[in-house]
Amino acid sequence: MNTPPPHNAHRYAVYYTPSPGTLGWLAGSHWLGRCAALLRPLPQLDIHGVEPEDLQRLTAAPRRYGWHATLKAPFALAPGTDWLELHHAVQQVARGLTPFAMPPLQVEQIGDFLALVPLPRHPANTALAAVAEACVKELQPLAAPLAADDLTRRSAGLTPRQLGMLQRWGHPFVLDEFRFHLSLTGSLGLVDTATADLVLDAAQQYFSDLPPLTFNSLALFAEPAPGADLVLLDHLELGA
């Protein structure tokens, strides 16, 4: 797919997503309540005992970013860099990678949010980490440095290692700090414990039927304006 790109987008990002229209894409997009490819809301799961408004609030943060796993977190382009240069660079990264079968995924709580994560110690986790490292390192020359206020705001609670990552790569959880995940909720503290437990149970049942996924492309996203919903611009096939 090729959505006409916003040439002056606030930020861009490189993600893993299942191909639009596949069951893997539709399952996650319906869970979040928005399709980042068609740019429209979608009906969410009806969870017994959970008010629709609570599920909407709980999924609001990941819904803005669309169904995805982060490889290169949102960044502004460096001065003098344009969208076409970025698109070409992402294409070059994709061409240097080989498609592979994803590990089985399971719902897990990470910190205070729910996410779909690969089974631990699965051999394909090494390939996932290598793809993320390639995106972070090879695309960083096209990224603008973080502004001083952004660094200050995002430094709270980080370890010295994570702070160094933030300063060098624009994000604290990269390289050896990276953990592949597709976010399902924002903070579980937005709802009461009973509601959070019902949402966890529903997510585990819902995603237990997710078909096997293949990592065969890099997804280029854009945030058109500060705070705007991110949109899927293009899927760039690995090895192509």
Rank of each mutant, 00 (worst) to 15 (best):
N2Y: 05
N8G: 13
R11V: 14
V14D: 01
Y15S: 05
Y15W: 10
Y16N: 12
P18T: 10
P18I: 11
S19D: 10
P20K: 09
G21Q: 08
G24I: 10
W25F: 12
S29Q: 12
C35L: 06
L38K: 06
R40P: 04
R40G: 11
R40W: 09
L42R: 12
D46V: 07
D46K: 13
I47D: 07
V50P: 04
V50T: 06
R57S: 09
T59F: 03
A61T: 08
Y65Q: 06
G66L: 12
W67R: 05
W67P: 10
W67M: 09
K72H: 13
A73N: 13
A78E: 13
G80P: 02
L84H: 12
H87P: 00
H87Q: 02
V90C: 03
P104E: 13
Q106A: 14
A115M: 11
R121A: 15
H122A: 02
A124Q: 08
T126Y: 02
A132H: 10
Q140W: 11
L142I: 12
A147E: 15
A147Q: 15
D150A: 08
R153E: 13
S155N: 05
G157C: 00
P160A: 02
G164A: 14
G164N: 11
F178P: 06
F180R: 03
H181P: 03
H181K: 05
T185K: 09
G186R: 06
G189I: 01
T195L: 02
D197C: 00
L198W: 15
L200P: 08
Q205C: 10
P211W: 14
P211T: 14
P212R: 15
S217N: 09
S217M: 06
L218K: 03
E223T: 14
G227H: 13
V231M: 10
L232F: 08
E237M: 02
G239R: 01
G239I: 04
A240H: 03
